[in-house]
C-alpha cells in the first residue's frame, strides 16, 4: 500500500502547512507539490489548500486554474484521482470545472471567520467515509467569497444524485440550499468551504478535532485499495 497525499502550493496559498501536518498526523505521507511544476510526483491523492492564490486576482481561483500543475491534475482527477479542495481549493476546483457551480461574494458582503456547525450529508466519497451519514460536526470557516451558486438544474441534479457532501447548520454566507461542500458525479473530487485541516488537534484551540475524519477517510480509502 501507499498513502502519499500531495499538497499543492500556489503563490498566495496559506493552509498548505496545516494540511501537510494533518496528513502526517493520521499516518500518511505529505508530498509538497509546486504550482509551476508539471509533476504530480506519483501521489495517490491531492489536497488543494485554502488561501489567496494569485491574490484572488480576476476571480478567486480563476488564474490558479491554468497553473502548470493544474494541467496535470485536471486529467488525473477526471481519471479518478481523489482530490479535496478546501476554501480557495474549492474555488479552484469550480473554476477548473471539476466541480459544478461557482463561489461568489458572501451575501452579507462581510468576511466570515467563525466556528461553523455542519452536517455531513454523504459518506460515499474517499474523503468522508469515516463519518456517519447525517453526523453533525464543527469546523472553522474563514472566507469572503463562499456563497455557493449554481443553476436550478445543476442544484436539482446535485440533490438528486446525493452530491451535496456537507451542509451548513445556520447559513453563514447565503449559499444556495445551505451547501458547504459538494462532490463530482464520480465522487472522487470533493470541495468544501470549511477547513478540516484547522481542526485536527485540541492543542491549537480548534473548536473540535472533527477535521481529522477527512484525513482518516482518505487514509482508509488508500490503504484498503
Amino acid at each position: 500500500m501507499s498513502a502519499r497525499v500531495g499538497i499543492v502550493t500556489f503563490p498566495g496559498t496559506l493552509d498548505d502547512q496545516d494540511a501537510a501536518r494533518a496528513v502526517r498526523l493520521v499516518g500518511a505521507e505529505a508530498v509538497p507539490l509546486w504550482h509551476a511544476d508539471h509533476d504530480l510526483k506519483g501521489v495517490d491523492a491531492v489536497f488543494l489548500p485554502g488561501g489567496f492564490s494569485y491574490g484572488d486576482y480576476l476571480r478567486c481561483g480563476a488564474i490558479s486554474r491554468f497553473a502548470p500543475l493544474m494541467r496535470e491534475l485536471v486529467p488525473a482527477a477526471r481519471q479518478g484521482l481523489p482530490v479535496l479542495g478546501t476554501c480557495n481549493g474549492f474555488q479552484i476546483l469550480c473554476e477548473a470545472h471539476l466541480l459544478p457551480g461557482a463561489l461568489t461574494r458572501n451575501a452579507s458582503l462581510h468576511y466570515v471567520c467563525r466556528d461553523q456547525r455542519l452536517k455531513v450529508e454523504t459518506t460515499a466519497t474517499p474523503w468522508t467515509n469515516a463519518f456517519a451519514a447525517g453526523q453533525e460536526i464543527v469546523l472553522p470557516i474563514k472566507h469572503g467569497e463562499g456563497r455557493y451558486v449554481a443553476s436550478a438544474d445543476t442544484l436539482a441534479a446535485l440533490e438528486a444524485n446525493g452530491q451535496v457532501v456537507v451542509r451548513y447548520l445556520g447559513n453563514p454566507n447565503g449559499s444556495l440550499n445551505d451547501i458547504a461542500g459538494i462532490r463530482n458525479e464520480a465522487g472522487n473530487v470533493v470541495g468544501l468551504m470549511p477547513h478540516p485541516e484547522h481542526a485536527v488537534e485540541d492543542l491549537v484551540g480548534a473548536p473540535s478535532t472533527d477535521g481529522l475524519g477527512f484525513f482518516t477517510s482518505i487514509l482508509k480509502k488508500l490503504v484498503d485499495a
Partner: peptide, 14 residues
Amino acid sequence: MLKPEILDPQGQAI
C-alpha cells in the same frame, strides 16, 4: 456582468 439570476450583493449595497 453577473447573470441576472445571480445575487449581486455589491450592487445592492451601492
